[in-house]
Design a binder for these strands. Sequence first.
DNA 1: TATCAAAGTGACACAACTGTCACCTTTTCT
DNA 2: AGAAAAGGTGACAGTTGTGTCACTTTGATA
Lengths: 191, 191
Amino acid sequence: MARERKFSMDELFSAVKELLLIHGYEGFTFSLLADRLKVSRGALYKYYENKEELITDYMITELNQFLTDLQKIEHCEGFEAKFDFLMNLIFDMPEVQQLIKIAVQIPVNVNEKVRENKAHLDKLHLEMYTHLQSFINLGKHEKKLKAHIADGLILGFIFQTIAIPNHFGIPHSEWVTSIKEIISHGMFTNN
Amino acid sequence: MARERKFSMDELFSAVKELLLIHGYEGFTFSLLADRLKVSRGALYKYYENKEELITDYMITELNQFLTDLQKIEHCEGFEAKFDFLMNLIFDMPEVQQLIKIAVQIPVNVNEKVRENKAHLDKLHLEMYTHLQSFINLGKHEKKLKAHIADGLILGFIFQTIAIPNHFGIPHSEWVTSIKEIISHGMFTNN
DNA sequence: TATCAAAGTGACACAACTGTCACCTTTTCT
DNA sequence: AGAAAAGGTGACAGTTGTGTCACTTTGATA
């Protein structure tokens, strides 16, 4: 016994994502979002008390999605298959890195709900790193990854390179292939 | 015949930089800046009509500095020396990449001054790429850089990797050495 | 078809940022 | 000492965002 909603949760979150990436955390407002969803600003307050709650809620959903996909890395046999899987996964969600950076900016002292959400986010973030850590351990154990390079750098490297802006419009498949090659064997020739 | 200023141009710009990196373009305000400089907001309007003028002006100074330093790459003999020089240069200004991203967000339709500044910035940006382009050409000509990897990707890669956040506090020298190694020869072993 | 709960609206009061300006302060030059 | 010029201040009006709330709309169900 309820009226139909003018926007689905999916539409809401995809609008949040879009606006966050364009305007950044501080530039994101309920007014922008309401306009975008063709709804009055007041309607949004039926669901969230403030933008911090909304954004953290969205981030949790996004990170959960990423983690669910990431779990499937276990189905890949051996380091190289896992590496390929991971690269493709990250290429499908190139914004994850940027969103995590935005998440850090959210103040915690807004209310209890936000504190909870941030804690939840931290948990997910940690879980993500645990998974990736075991991937790196495998790579080093199989002697595929250089042992003397710090794990944190390997991780950071993989995430960061995905976010390289393709200013010159290089075709996607060439782009992906080349990035994989640089990450694996560098941009220098072997002479 | 004038009164002493409460802040130097250097202090102004370094405050702008700091606040920009923390709050992003939309989160940057004259109020924040005035507080930071311990000056009234009105004082800032003696120098700049709005934040767009101020930010673009700052960016021009920053990019000019970077370019001046970059020119010195010509003093290095051969590709490998130039590569080392460039890596060190970028490591000394890891924020350049992030600032350029912010520059893109500045709207052009504020006033004539801002339009001019943006055009100037574009010119400097292009000049920077021209320099780097000839660096890459040299690398490919000396057969040090893989010829089949697009120039735009090589550039993007170098810039982007510098900005990898060192979350785990790996010592700077190890960090730099490892990044150079990955860029040059990848993170895979040669088996 | 009458009811009721969820969804949505628009107005209100408040807070923050913006741009301007009359006025005050400090310094230097004559 | 007095004028001139640049630096600095605080208040004002305007705009945009925030959070709340009484009220209306919608649609399933009893």
